[in-house]
Design a protein around this nucleic acid. Sequence first.
DNA 1: CGTATCCTGACC
DNA 2: GGTCAGGATACG
Length: 270
Amino acid sequence: MPELPEVDEAARRAREVLVGREIRRVVVLHPSQRRSLPLRACRQLVGQEVEGIARRGKYQLIALTSGSTLLVHFRLNGDWVHAQTGEELPAHARIVLEMVGGDSLVLTDSRALCTMTLHAPGEVLLADLGPDAIEPAFNAEWLAAQVEKRRIAIKVVLLDQRVVAGVGNIYASEALWEARVSPHAVASSLRRARLERIVSGIRSVMGRAMQGAQRYYGSDATVPAEVGVDEPQRFNVYDREGDACMRCGSAIRREVQAGRSTYWCGKCQR
DNA sequence: CGTATCCTGACC
DNA sequence: GGTCAGGATACG
């Protein structure tokens, strides 16, 4: 599940392929992807050069020389794959950005729910998006102001991209475990000390997932063969219903909040 | 505020 | 062969 750390890493790979290069052709392979990227937009993309790629939350903003922006969201399963000239397209290839030179950056997405939209120069994008989860602007002061009037569960608040950009369902559970705060705690009732812990929890969870070198943690965790285990220890609570809490040994619980699975330890998260 | 919707792979 | 997850958005 691409959240901020995974999107950041993907944007880095996309940068290496696209920046300074000209788009030769755009091919949409799945009909549902045309909703966000119609033929008209594909035509406008041809001949444009990529100036740079920025990330805000889980969005990637591909800046083009014309001043327009290609806005990409991976949703649940999106990823970039660099396909060489003449090479067979990867599984679940949905949109192909073919560059002058012949190689392509391919959007892969098994569920075809990704969005890729083209925006005119000067158009204000993502105006409602909150501060990035890993930026200093996301801090306890900001969070306190956001939770003030919200009498809903803190976990649901953390998934609101207007409050903090880049936190998804997995890392919201993980961060609250780190902070020892119950996902069911009413947001407006949380006081400063606990908000500080939540902010730290989000930062540390995101930070750990972003360290690409040794991924023992994160939604795309891999373990080097020499470690000698089959499965990486991915998460502390997520997807661990019934397993022992890594901190206190109590059984991890699961419940659905706002339509999404929440995992937590009922003993050490209050 | 909650719920349906998009979509398909993974699971029973 | 049916159910379900899940981010963002559109609804009631």
